[in-house]
Simulated scan of single mutants.
Amino acid sequence: MVMHSSTGNKLEFVSSPAFVTLRTLGPFAEPDAQRKPPKALDKSARFALDKGFLALGLDRAAAVVLRLNQADPNHERKGSLEFNSKPFSEAEITKNRKMADLLQLTVEDERALAGSAPALMSYFAIVQETAGLDDILFKILDLPSLWSMIRHGGVNANIRFDTKHIATAPDALLTLPTAPRLYQFPVALDLNNQPALNIKFLATAPQPPLLSCGGIVGMLVERPDGKGTYLTLRVISARCSTTKR
Protein backbone atom coordinates (compact mmCIF):
# COMPACT_ATOMS: atom_id res chain seq x y z
CA MET A 1 0.00 0.00 0.00
CA VAL A 2 1.29 3.44 -0.96
CA MET A 3 0.01 6.67 0.58
CA HIS A 4 1.04 10.26 -0.07
CA SER A 5 0.99 12.93 2.62
CA SER A 6 -0.02 16.54 2.10
CA THR A 7 3.55 17.51 3.03
CA GLY A 8 4.91 15.67 0.00
CA ASN A 9 6.11 12.41 1.54
CA LYS A 10 5.51 9.02 -0.03
CA LEU A 11 4.74 6.34 2.55
CA GLU A 12 4.81 2.63 1.76
CA PHE A 13 3.30 -0.13 3.88
CA VAL A 14 4.06 -3.78 3.19
CA SER A 15 1.33 -6.38 3.48
CA SER A 16 2.33 -9.66 5.14
CA PRO A 17 -0.39 -12.33 5.49
CA ALA A 18 -0.33 -14.89 8.29
CA PHE A 19 -2.75 -17.33 9.89
CA VAL A 20 -4.21 -17.00 13.37
CA THR A 21 -6.59 -19.02 15.52
CA LEU A 22 -9.30 -16.99 17.26
CA ARG A 23 -11.46 -18.27 20.09
CA THR A 24 -14.50 -16.17 21.02
CA LEU A 25 -16.61 -16.43 24.17
CA GLY A 26 -20.00 -14.74 24.45
CA PRO A 27 -22.02 -12.69 24.07
CA PHE A 28 -22.66 -12.02 27.75
CA ALA A 29 -25.51 -9.65 28.64
CA GLU A 30 -26.21 -7.63 31.75
CA PRO A 31 -28.87 -9.22 34.01
CA ASP A 32 -32.40 -8.33 32.92
CA ALA A 33 -35.45 -9.88 34.59
CA GLN A 34 -37.67 -9.01 31.62
CA ARG A 35 -35.83 -11.00 28.99
CA LYS A 36 -33.86 -14.18 28.61
CA PRO A 37 -30.10 -13.65 28.26
CA PRO A 38 -28.54 -14.70 24.95
CA LYS A 39 -26.83 -18.04 24.79
CA ALA A 40 -23.10 -17.65 25.32
CA LEU A 41 -21.12 -19.25 22.51
CA ASP A 42 -17.66 -20.77 22.57
CA LYS A 43 -16.33 -20.91 19.03
CA SER A 44 -12.96 -21.09 17.35
CA ALA A 45 -11.92 -20.09 13.85
CA ARG A 46 -8.70 -20.13 11.89
CA PHE A 47 -8.21 -17.51 9.20
CA ALA A 48 -5.65 -15.29 7.49
CA LEU A 49 -4.85 -11.79 8.70
CA ASP A 50 -2.39 -9.11 7.65
CA LYS A 51 0.33 -8.98 10.28
CA GLY A 52 2.21 -6.38 8.23
CA PHE A 53 -0.61 -3.86 8.62
CA LEU A 54 -1.52 -4.94 12.16
CA ALA A 55 2.09 -4.32 13.23
CA LEU A 56 1.56 -0.63 12.45
CA GLY A 57 -0.84 -0.39 15.41
CA LEU A 58 -2.63 2.63 16.83
CA ASP A 59 -0.34 3.39 19.76
CA ARG A 60 2.27 5.38 17.84
CA ALA A 61 -0.41 7.43 16.10
CA ALA A 62 -2.00 8.17 19.48
CA ALA A 63 1.35 9.32 20.88
CA VAL A 64 1.89 11.66 17.91
CA VAL A 65 -1.62 13.13 18.23
CA LEU A 66 -1.12 13.78 21.94
CA ARG A 67 2.14 15.59 21.24
CA LEU A 68 0.53 17.70 18.49
CA ASN A 69 -2.41 18.55 20.74
CA GLN A 70 0.01 19.75 23.41
CA ALA A 71 1.97 21.83 20.92
CA ASP A 72 -1.17 23.34 19.41
CA PRO A 73 -3.99 22.93 21.98
CA ASN A 74 -6.34 25.37 20.24
CA HIS A 75 -5.75 23.86 16.79
CA GLU A 76 -4.64 27.17 15.35
CA ARG A 77 -2.26 25.57 12.88
CA LYS A 78 -2.38 26.91 9.33
CA GLY A 79 -2.43 23.89 7.12
CA SER A 80 -3.48 20.29 7.46
CA LEU A 81 -1.98 16.84 7.36
CA GLU A 82 -3.90 14.56 5.03
CA PHE A 83 -3.20 11.33 3.20
CA ASN A 84 -4.24 10.15 -0.22
CA SER A 85 -3.42 7.47 -2.75
CA LYS A 86 -2.35 10.21 -5.18
CA PRO A 87 0.25 12.98 -4.67
CA PHE A 88 -0.93 16.42 -3.57
CA SER A 89 -0.34 19.60 -5.56
CA GLU A 90 2.84 21.61 -5.09
CA ALA A 91 0.83 24.49 -3.62
CA GLU A 92 -0.71 22.22 -0.98
CA ILE A 93 2.64 20.63 -0.18
CA THR A 94 4.39 24.00 0.26
CA LYS A 95 1.67 25.27 2.59
CA ASN A 96 1.54 22.12 4.71
CA ARG A 97 5.32 21.75 4.97
CA LYS A 98 5.44 25.07 6.79
CA MET A 99 2.95 23.72 9.31
CA ALA A 100 4.91 20.46 9.66
CA ASP A 101 8.15 22.35 10.29
CA LEU A 102 6.47 24.55 12.88
CA LEU A 103 5.11 21.52 14.75
CA GLN A 104 8.34 19.55 14.26
CA LEU A 105 6.43 16.79 12.50
CA THR A 106 8.77 14.09 11.20
CA VAL A 107 8.36 11.53 8.43
CA GLU A 108 8.11 8.83 11.10
CA ASP A 109 5.29 10.79 12.75
CA GLU A 110 3.47 10.89 9.43
CA ARG A 111 4.05 7.19 8.95
CA ALA A 112 2.56 6.46 12.38
CA LEU A 113 -0.53 8.54 11.61
CA ALA A 114 -1.06 7.15 8.12
CA GLY A 115 -0.39 3.58 9.26
CA SER A 116 -3.25 3.69 11.74
CA ALA A 117 -5.72 3.43 8.84
CA PRO A 118 -4.55 0.07 7.40
CA ALA A 119 -4.01 -1.19 10.96
CA LEU A 120 -7.61 -0.37 11.84
CA MET A 121 -9.01 -1.89 8.66
CA SER A 122 -7.06 -5.09 9.35
CA TYR A 123 -8.44 -5.18 12.89
CA PHE A 124 -12.00 -4.84 11.58
CA ALA A 125 -11.32 -7.87 9.37
CA ILE A 126 -10.60 -9.83 12.57
CA VAL A 127 -13.73 -8.53 14.29
CA GLN A 128 -15.78 -9.87 11.39
CA GLU A 129 -14.71 -13.36 12.43
CA THR A 130 -16.22 -12.92 15.92
CA ALA A 131 -19.27 -15.18 16.22
CA GLY A 132 -22.61 -13.46 16.84
CA LEU A 133 -21.23 -9.94 16.51
CA ASP A 134 -23.25 -8.87 13.47
CA ASP A 135 -26.60 -9.24 15.27
CA ILE A 136 -25.43 -7.09 18.19
CA LEU A 137 -23.98 -4.40 15.95
CA PHE A 138 -27.23 -4.04 14.03
CA LYS A 139 -29.05 -3.47 17.33
CA ILE A 140 -26.66 -0.62 18.11
CA LEU A 141 -26.27 0.87 14.64
CA ASP A 142 -28.15 4.11 14.07
CA LEU A 143 -29.12 3.57 10.44
CA PRO A 144 -29.83 6.53 8.14
CA SER A 145 -33.38 7.24 7.07
CA LEU A 146 -34.93 5.81 3.93
CA TRP A 147 -34.81 9.24 2.28
CA SER A 148 -31.13 9.56 3.09
CA MET A 149 -30.41 6.22 1.43
CA ILE A 150 -32.42 7.24 -1.63
CA ARG A 151 -30.65 10.60 -1.86
CA HIS A 152 -27.19 9.02 -1.59
CA GLY A 153 -28.03 6.03 -3.78
CA GLY A 154 -27.51 3.65 -0.86
CA VAL A 155 -25.24 4.00 2.17
CA ASN A 156 -21.92 5.85 2.18
CA ALA A 157 -19.72 4.98 5.16
CA ASN A 158 -16.95 7.13 6.59
CA ILE A 159 -14.73 6.65 9.65
CA ARG A 160 -13.52 9.75 11.51
CA PHE A 161 -10.68 9.76 14.03
CA ASP A 162 -11.68 11.79 17.09
CA THR A 163 -8.20 13.23 17.61
CA LYS A 164 -9.33 15.75 20.25
CA HIS A 165 -10.24 12.95 22.65
CA ILE A 166 -7.31 10.57 22.17
CA ALA A 167 -5.79 10.08 25.62
CA THR A 168 -3.67 7.79 27.74
CA ALA A 169 -5.57 5.11 29.64
CA PRO A 170 -4.88 3.76 33.15
CA ASP A 171 -2.12 1.14 33.02
CA ALA A 172 -4.14 -1.01 35.42
CA LEU A 173 -6.48 -1.90 32.54
CA LEU A 174 -3.72 -4.01 31.01
CA THR A 175 -1.54 -6.55 32.78
CA LEU A 176 1.68 -7.36 30.94
CA PRO A 177 5.22 -7.91 32.23
CA THR A 178 6.62 -4.99 30.22
CA ALA A 179 3.87 -2.52 31.29
CA PRO A 180 3.49 -0.82 27.88
CA ARG A 181 1.66 2.49 27.47
CA LEU A 182 -2.09 2.15 26.92
CA TYR A 183 -4.19 4.62 24.91
CA GLN A 184 -7.85 5.44 24.39
CA PHE A 185 -8.40 5.85 20.66
CA PRO A 186 -11.95 6.98 19.76
CA VAL A 187 -13.37 6.92 16.24
CA ALA A 188 -16.82 7.63 14.83
CA LEU A 189 -18.68 5.89 12.02
CA ASP A 190 -20.85 8.10 9.82
CA LEU A 191 -23.44 6.75 7.40
CA ASN A 192 -24.56 9.22 4.74
CA ASN A 193 -22.86 12.01 6.71
CA GLN A 194 -24.88 11.19 9.84
CA PRO A 195 -23.34 9.81 13.09
CA ALA A 196 -24.11 6.09 13.33
CA LEU A 197 -21.66 4.58 15.85
CA ASN A 198 -19.09 5.72 18.38
CA ILE A 199 -16.20 3.31 18.87
CA LYS A 200 -13.50 3.59 21.52
CA PHE A 201 -10.43 1.37 21.29
CA LEU A 202 -7.94 0.51 24.00
CA ALA A 203 -4.63 0.16 22.21
CA THR A 204 -1.06 -0.61 23.14
CA ALA A 205 2.10 -1.62 21.27
CA PRO A 206 1.33 -4.41 18.76
CA GLN A 207 4.07 -6.70 20.00
CA PRO A 208 3.62 -10.50 20.15
CA PRO A 209 1.40 -12.00 21.39
CA LEU A 210 -0.77 -8.91 20.77
CA LEU A 211 0.39 -8.56 17.16
CA SER A 212 -2.57 -10.63 15.95
CA CYS A 213 -4.99 -7.97 17.24
CA GLY A 214 -2.87 -4.97 16.27
CA GLY A 215 -2.30 -4.14 19.94
CA ILE A 216 -6.03 -3.43 20.38
CA VAL A 217 -7.00 -5.10 23.66
CA GLY A 218 -10.49 -3.69 24.07
CA MET A 219 -13.32 -2.03 22.17
CA LEU A 220 -16.49 -0.22 23.22
CA VAL A 221 -19.21 0.33 20.61
CA GLU A 222 -22.26 2.46 21.36
CA ARG A 223 -24.84 4.69 19.74
CA PRO A 224 -23.97 8.38 19.24
CA ASP A 225 -26.38 9.33 22.05
CA GLY A 226 -24.87 6.75 24.42
CA LYS A 227 -28.25 5.11 25.03
CA GLY A 228 -29.57 1.59 24.50
CA THR A 229 -27.59 -1.52 23.64
CA TYR A 230 -23.81 -1.30 23.64
CA LEU A 231 -21.02 -3.74 22.92
CA THR A 232 -17.70 -4.38 24.61
CA LEU A 233 -15.05 -6.66 23.18
CA ARG A 234 -11.94 -7.56 25.16
CA VAL A 235 -8.87 -9.69 24.70
CA ILE A 236 -8.73 -11.96 27.74
CA SER A 237 -5.79 -14.10 26.67
CA ALA A 238 -3.16 -14.17 23.94
CA ARG A 239 -0.20 -16.41 23.25
CA CYS A 240 2.28 -17.10 20.49
CA SER A 241 2.12 -20.39 18.65
CA THR A 242 4.91 -22.84 19.38
CA THR A 243 4.46 -24.48 15.99
CA LYS A 244 6.73 -23.28 13.20
CA ARG A 245 5.12 -23.08 9.78
Rank of each mutant, 00 (worst) to 15 (best):
S145C: 08
T7Y: 07
E129P: 01
I140R: 04
P118S: 13
A48I: 00
K10L: 09
L143S: 11
D50Y: 01
L66G: 10
I140P: 03
K10H: 09
L120P: 00
K10Y: 05
R35S: 15
D42G: 01
I136D: 00
R35M: 09
P73L: 07
P31E: 15
T7F: 06
T24H: 02
E108M: 05
K86N: 00
G52M: 04
L58A: 00
G26A: 02
L22Y: 03
P27N: 08
S80Q: 13
L68G: 10
N69A: 14
D135R: 15
E92Q: 11
Q70T: 15
D135G: 10
L102C: 09
T106V: 06
S116A: 04
F47T: 00
G57P: 06
P27T: 00
S89C: 02
D101G: 08
I93P: 05
Q104C: 07
A40P: 02
Q70I: 04
F88P: 01
L81M: 09
V64E: 00
A117P: 00
L41R: 06
V107K: 12
S5N: 11
R97I: 07
I136P: 00
L146H: 10
E92P: 05
T24P: 01
E30G: 04
Q34T: 15
N96K: 06
R111I: 05
R60H: 13
F19K: 08
L143R: 13
D134S: 14
E76F: 05
F83I: 01
V65W: 05
L54H: 02
A100K: 09
L49V: 09
S44L: 07
G52Q: 07
M121N: 15
A117C: 03
R97P: 02
L102H: 14
P38V: 04
P118M: 10
F138P: 00
D142Y: 04
V14T: 15
E12H: 10
L133M: 10
P17L: 07
R111S: 13
S5F: 05
T130G: 00
R67T: 02
R67E: 11
D72C: 06
A63N: 06
D142N: 15
E82L: 03
P31C: 12
E30Y: 10
L49D: 04
P37K: 05
P38C: 07
R67V: 01
D50G: 04
L137I: 12
E90V: 05
L58M: 03
N74A: 09
D72I: 11
